[in-house]
Design a protein around this nucleic acid. Structure first.
Lengths: 205, 205
DNA sequence: ATTTTTGTTAACCATTTGGTTAAATCATAT
DNA sequence: ATATGATTTAACCAAATGGTTAACAAAAAT
């Protein structure tokens, strides 16, 4: 429950509360009352600021999606050598996600419930990841013979999987490997360098 | 909606319906009425066979978890050279998940909502993945100098991430790479060989 | 054949939940 | 001070939802 001495506006308090509840419980599991309680306000006030649950959810979801998708794009489309691009992606993306470890699962889950609706809603303009440039870049390196033969799609999947999945499976990994919160953070920090090294080692001839 | 001409028992019909609805909508989003409709039966009959929603959900969840976790364990603990074990894991695990592409996200999501409850419930005895043997095996190879230096934990994370994540992000990958259902299946089939090759290439000196 | 048990249903019930209303309070301009 | 508009609340409301009941049908046991 967050107090409001007017350094934060009510709307911000609501959004913070809504984010917390939605991300933890999902659209279906979240209760408007929970959000109100978390924000320390009356339930009616929620509807005063955001007409209904769906509208409020959409704001939170879009905010989350905007935090996750456009950055991928920017890095993938950058004008940079392949290996640097990979290093850059891991470094920057892990940083982003470390600040919001639960966003990826939240977004992936909601997308899964209704792919067409969400993907059309989210991927409008700049937000739509466009992997073709990266795929072509990989293909070019393969043809030049500077890296081993590999299907660019698989390399892309490998890169994204290794970067994001540990956050999606955070509780599982933590429990199973007996990692504390700090240990997990440290491990993710290491992966910023570890993943590029792993990939580049695999690609080098 | 499934018909029941007594080659399948009512209980089985219910479980199939429940699985479909729970996996798609999650515990919170699933409606008992939806499950009843999907099974082509009265809602009261659900409660006749399974006392309540929670009980029914638990059956479905455990069924899903039992399908995903024990196999990991078996392979990890097998008595086999490291590279063969990796090849084996990808081959077998991708096969399992291809039959139920939506199970991983479902399970990960529910675990995320209440890690302690579910992980205690699921990881009892044989079901609990025990990665220590594999970790030690990796460590041994590193010390023998047969593979490059690598933190076993990261290698384990990489292996699991590359294997499972594409299914977790299935709609995203499909939409973004413009893949049909068949193309996705083909890609996953390829990954059975692609992932081990990628990993082994990275580890070889 | 008929009793008993098992399976199935329609009609209900209580609670939860998203959403509304009308009144109260607060801030601001006049 | 006070009128005005924005903000906040308590009390409600209707629909949805998990769950129950009592009656009925089918199968199994006697």
């Amino acid at each position: 429950m967050v107090k409001n001495k007017k350094d934060t506006t009510t709307e911000e308090v609501i959004l913070a509360a809504a984010k917390k509840v939605f991300v933890q419980k999902g659209m279906a599991g979240a209760r408007m009352q929970d959000i109100a309680d978390e924000a320390g306000i009356n339930k009616a006030l929620l509807h005063y600021y955001f007409r209904n649950k769906e509208k409020l959810f959409e704001v939170i979801f879009m905010e989350a999606a905007e935090k996750l998708f456009p950055k991928i794009n920017a890095i993938f489309e950058a004008d940079q050598p392949l290996f640097e691009k990979i290093e850059n992606f891991c470094e920057e993306y892990i940083s982003i996600v470390m600040d919001n470890p639960y966003l990826p699962l939240f977004v992936l889950n909601e997308i899964n419930q209704d792919p067409d609706y969400f993907l059309k809603k989210v991927w409008t303009g700049k937000s739509k990841p466009n992997p073709v440039k990266l795929l072509e870049q990989i293909d070019k390196e393969v043809r030049k013979g500077t890296i081993k033969r590999i299907n660019p799609m698989h390399l892309l999947m490998n890169l994204i999987s290794m970067t994001i999945f540990p956050f999606v499976a955070k509780p599982m990994f933590q429990k199973n490997l007996g990692m504390s919160e700090v240990q997990f953070k440290m491990a993710m920090e290491e992966r910023k360098k570890e993943i590029p090294r792993f990939i580049i080692d695999s690609l080098k001839k």
